[in-house]
Design a protein around this nucleic acid. Structure first.
Length: 462
RNA sequence: GGAGAGGUGGCAGAGUGGUUGAAUGCAGCGGUCUUGAAAACCGCCGAGGAUUUGCGUCCUCCGUGGGUUCAAAUCCCACCCUCUCCGCCA
């Protein structure tokens, strides 16, 4: 589907921001934020915006629930206030000389009346608050205005292309054939399946080394040239972290969960542990922006992807990724998404791999994302671009879920951060792209210049 | 795995039953002073929520969940986490 010219222009220029005279207070008036106040005030606008991603917000249910909550809050708080007052009275009576028992007797009647209702009312209020929380946890982020309409990846809009796909004077093989020709067991899916079943790979020798070289190269580039700090994190996380970034509660099926009483999950992406570094914190403004880059393996069950990309290592249960994560002030997130996407693109440029950038349409947007650019690398065997990176602005959505805040010096108040992340890049897919784009007719593979320092100068895999 | 210590506001660190959301210090904010800055001095300064046009009033929160009590940061129980020592171990 071709983009209308007007829409294309809109995507390429930064959208105008809100008026500067508006106070920078986080929780009011901005319909892009899915917080409960915004939902009360601008329910219709938010519901409309969510429709763009194919989500139907049940406003009536929310409002009914919210009304019940209000009622329950008022009742339980009133009872609690009465009770506190009575018990303070006892203290004062004792202080002014009354016998302890006499003082107690004086309020016994009142207390009994209150207690008859108190527990029930508090219980009820808690239960309703819980319901509201559950409801809100299940609502995806609101797309920003410039996200194009559309239902699936066919409606994503190309923003730019870089590089020219190489023209081969022989029939290019796909990465599986290239890899298997590189020497016994260089890329071995059969022995991987002996160990772990489908969707795993074994690599040996120079290919394994190239894979590792990619990781080093990416980390060095991001730390050395793009201002990121390298970070090492756990690969097992608890449910709270996954709720924070949005994998839970809705996408538990996509995760590998540990057995045992400790409730731990294998991370599906470094986004989870790295973004959650800021959970439950109020960070100083002068530590922002925080830029983290992190190499981790990623584990995904790929439930619901049966039959998709079954050949090769494009879609694996375990793959390596170098991730970029940024925690920024709200007013910076929009520009940061452009910069971060550029950082991921820089890797492909250095590797001289042709790619294009698309902006995801509403229907293809991930649950927590407000806006996403996918970077797609050219794969000769498929004669098409395939996703190798996904860069998203989550605005304050994840921050709200994980209570990640910063102290705004202008207001002195804690406000929600904006979080972003992107793959920089998916290592397995980068390896696939190199094998396919750098293959030679004799079955060897040229090592991209940028990686040679990481391969002790090796120029070719044979 | 065994023994001990501890989890309090942005940070550090008091507080062991009563009006304490919490001393004090640092940081932060405002002011005095100064040509400016520093220093000094004075004042303000936890978070979330309900309600109100607003002033305000109220509720919750001292790791989590229970319990005792008229009243819990403070007492009791369980759990989680951190630290120290011992054992084991990459």
């Amino acid at each position: 589907m071709q983009p209308p010219a007007a829409l294309f222009a809109k995507l390429c220029t930064p959208a105008p921001r809100r008026p500067t005279d508006e106070s920078p207070t986080v929780s009011r008036g901005d319909p892009n934020m899915l917080d409960i106040r915004a939902l009360r005030q601008d329910g219709e606008a938010i519901a409309e915006a969510l429709r763009k991603r194919g989500y139907e917000l049940d406003l009536d249910a929310f409002r009914a629930l919210d009304a019940r909550r209000k009622d329950a809050d008022v009742r339980s708080q009133d009872l609690q206030a009465q009770r506190k007052k009575a018990s303070r009275e006892v203290g004062e009576l004792i202080k002014s000389g009354m016998e302890v028992d006499a003082a107690k007797a004086k309020v016994a009647e009142t207390l009994k009346e209150i207690d008859d209702q108190l527990d029930g009312e508090v219980e009820r209020a808690k239960a309703i608050q819980e319901q509201i929380r559950d409801f809100l946890m299940g609502v995806p982020n609101v797309p920003v205005e410039e996200v194009p309409a559309g239902s699936d990846e066919d409606d994503n809009v190309e923003v730019r292309q870089w590089g020219t796909p190489r023209s081969f004077d022989f029939e290019p093989k796909d990465h599986v054939d290239v890899g298997e020709n590189l020497g016994a067991g260089a890329l071995d899916f059969e022995r991987a399946s002996k160990l772990s079943g489908a969707r795993f790979a074994v690599m040996t020798g120079q290919l394994a080394r190239l894979h590792r070289a990619l990781i080093d190269f990416m980390l060095d580039t991001h730390t050395g040239e793009h201002g990121y700090q390298e970070v090492y994190v756990p690969y097992l996380v608890g449910p709270e972290a996954l709720r924070g970034t949005g994998q839970l509660p809705k996408f538990e099926d996509d995760l590998f969960k540990m057995r045992g009483e400790r409730e731990l999950y294998l991370i599906p992406t470094a986004e989870v542990p790295v973004t959650n570094l800021a959970a439950d914190e109020i960070v100083d403004a002068d530590t922002l922006p925080r830029r983290y880059t992190c190499h981790t393996p990623c584990f995904r069950s790929e439930a619901g992807s049966h039959g998709k990309d079954t050949r090769g290592m494009i879609r694996q249960h375990q793959f390596e990724k170098v991730e970029l994560v940024q925690l920024v002030r709200p007013e910076e997130s929009e520009a940061t998404l452009e910069a971060l996407t550029g950082h991921a693109e820089a890797i492909l440029k250095k590797l001289d791999l042709p790619y294009r950038v698309v902006v995801l349409c509403g229907g293809d947007l991930g649950f927590s994302a407000a806006k996403t650019y996918d970077i797609e690398v050219w794969l000769p065997s498929q004669q098409r671009y395939r996703e190798i990176s996904s860069c998203s602005n989550f605005r304050d959505y994840q921050a709200r879920r994980m209570q990640a805040r910063w102290r705004n010096p202008e207001t002195g108040k804690p406000e929600l951060l904006h979080t972003l992340n992107g793959s920089g890049l998916a290592v397995g897919r980068a390896l696939v792209a190199i094998l396919e784009n750098y293959q030679n007719e004799d079955g060897s593979v040229t090592v991209p210049e940028a990686l040679r320092p990481y391969m002790r100068g090796l120029e070719r895999l044979v």
